[in-house]
Design a protein around this nucleic acid. Structure first.
Length: 505
RNA sequence: GGCGCGUUGGUCAAGGGGUUAAGACGCCUCCCUUUCACGGAGGAAUCACGGGUUCGAAUCCCGUACGUGCUACCA
């Protein structure tokens, strides 16, 4: 195993949510840091929950986040196919290999029979209600049935599964790159189903067989998998692949902001923030907006996600993808979960908007302007607008409100101008129009000095006329310096906006 | 219930025997700005609890509590 190969295996059953993207990101960072491959395998065994279009959606999300896989069903690679359903054939053979070596067995129990077993065990006062070493000899399987009977049932196509046979009394020890040394007893590990009645493998069989086949060197996933790690480790042993077992890492969970539990897809709607990277058409919830649609930059989204469970030990908080690849160390990934904080997420976006130049922001911004029907004919002007306004935008959507008045005259609420209005002020603006109209200059110094001089001449405080001037141009009390705005929208437009208002007063 | 993992301000966190226990988000105050932001200065707020070990514990050990995950022919 000369090269690092990590694989990310989302189940295409529901949108790619925060936890999923973060797992992908950490896998990607680790792979790239070590010059390895980032493999995407699609786990589509659960037919009933498979959602149409989900697989493409995952590619789109990863693309938007700039973490595209090197190998995948879409991009191919040396160990294709990467879609679990297309690998179906090999799983049965591996399961049967285990049966022959005595590490697995056929089980013919129906779900009702298993349910009855649990009831019985419970009634007997057992703590352990699992189908395992304590109970398997009471069930209908190839351990209790004779060889003949077993073969007969199989020949008759009686539905059956293959279960792993785990012997009690063993200590399973392994080193987790995030959690450290972990030791578990095989006593509490149940005889998990490896091959389902429909012939498809469960996750347990599939990860082990596929990871081995694909020469995966590092197996990273969410913490929810930690309790089943012993099954996977035992499987590597039973297959005789112990020396090729990947290194494990289990990432902490992303928790709900208001406590109680891991962040779920429903929390987004309930708490008013996105949980998906991109818009997702959920069969149950309908169309759910993602971070992208809410106005997040991919740079900020990735940055925020990376910091939710890892930091480099310095005070640095804003990282580009490239910087993340360089700085990422898996042993600095936290062992405990983090509550998601939408305010902090927005802060990251704000930081990235400030950090990126107007030109860099342009591609992400253009669709927003187009959507709102801005007529942008002058890219140079647009660039000026963006630089003037970007520091006051937290989300991309804020740019609409913050820059609309550059492209079309605002709707001015007269009351805002009329506040402390007097005839002298009207006179001021009339004179201002004349002065500016007759001048050939239109730069910041000229505008500011002529404006202030005139105010002083008329014994008005500049501030007293600056405020209404702003409202005339902007439509509200916000935005960059008024003279900067006037320069960008131009002389003609500036004068016309003033005239339009003072005529109404 | 059983088993696993975890626990530093409201949140994200640095820190791994001696620190005035960093920093960030959010909140508050002030400065800058005749707007709103940006920026700058400052403030309130923390080592879950109980026992050990030690001259000394946020740091090591043990318990407890709490949180969280798993306990499916889901992943």
């Amino acid at each position: 195993m000369s090269k690092v190969r990590v694989r990310f295996a989302p189940s295409p059953t529901g949108g790619l949510h925060l936890g999923g993207v973060r797992t992908a990101l950490y896998n990607y960072l680790f792979a790239k840091k070590h010059g390895g491959d980032f493999v995407l395998r699609v786990e589509d065994t659960d037919q009933t929950r498979f959602v149409e279009g989900a697989e493409d959606y995952i590619y789109d999300c990863l693309d938007w986040c700039r973490i595209p896989p090197d190998e995948s069903p879409k991009h191919g690679g040396p160990f294709a196919p990467y879609r679990q359903s297309e690998r179906k054939n090999s799983y049965r053979q591996f399961a049967e290999q285990l049966v022959r070596s005595g590490h697995a067995y056929y089980a013919f129990d129906t779900s009702e029979e298993i349910e009855a077993l649990r009831e019985k065990l419970k009634a007997e006062g057992n703590d352990n209600l699992q189908y395992g070493h304590q109970s398997r000899m009471r069930m209908r399987n190839s351990l209790t049935l004779s060889e003949e009977e077993t073969q007969k049932l199989i020949a008759q196509n009686v539905p059956h599964v293959v279960r792993i046979r785990i012997e009690p009394g063993q200590s399973i020890h392994f080193r987790d790159l995030v959690k450290g040394d972990i030791e578990m007893s095989s006593d509490t590990v149940d005889d998990k189903v490896l091959l389902k009645a429909d012939g498809m493998p469960t996750y347990h069989l599939a990860v082990v067989v596929d990871d081995h086949a694909m020469q995966i060197t590092h197996s990273f996933r969410g913490e929810e998998w930690l309790p089943s790690a012993p099954v996977h480790i035992l499987l590597y042993q039973y297959f005789g692949w112990k020396n090729e077992m990947p290194q494990w890492a289990h990432f902490p969970l992303i928790l709900k902001p208001d406590g109680n539990g891991k962040l779920s897809k429903r929390d987004g709607e309930r708490l008013g923030f996105p949980v998906f990277a991109m818009e997702w058409n959920d069969p149950k919830q309908g169309l759910v907006k993602g971070f992208k649609e809410l106005g997040f930059l991919p740079e900020a989204f990735i940055n925020m996600l990376a910091m939710l469970g890892w930091n480099d030990g310095t005070e640095k908080e804003t990282f580009s993808l490239e910087e993340l690849v360089n700085a990422f160390e898996i042993d600095r990934v936290h062992a405990h979960g983090a509550k998601f904080d939408f305010e902090k997420a927005k802060w990251f976006n704000h930081e990235w908007i400030k950090k990126l130049s107007a030109v860099e922001l342009m591609p992400s911004l253009l669709p927003w302007f187009e959507k709102d029907g801005f007529e942008i004919f002058d890219m140079e002007q647009l660039e000026k607008v963006i630089s003037l306004v970007k520091d006051r935008c937290t989300l991309l959507s804020d740019f609409i409100h913050q820059s609309a008045y550059f492209f079309r005259a605002p709707e001015v609420e007269l009351a805002l101008v009329q506040d402390k209005w007097e005839g002298k002020k009207k006179e001021f603006f009339e004179q201002l129009i004349l002065a500016w109209k007759g001048s050939g200059q239109w730069d910041h110094d000229f505008l500011e000095s002529s404006f202030k001089e005139l105010a002083n001449q008329m014994e008005l405080k500049p501030g007293a006329v600056l405020a209404p001037f702003r409202v005339m141009l902007v439509g509200g009390k916000f935005g960059p310096g008024v003279f900067d705005i006037a320069i960008v929208i131009g002389k003609e437009e500036t004068l016309s906006r003033i005239i339009k208002i003072i005529e109404q007063l």
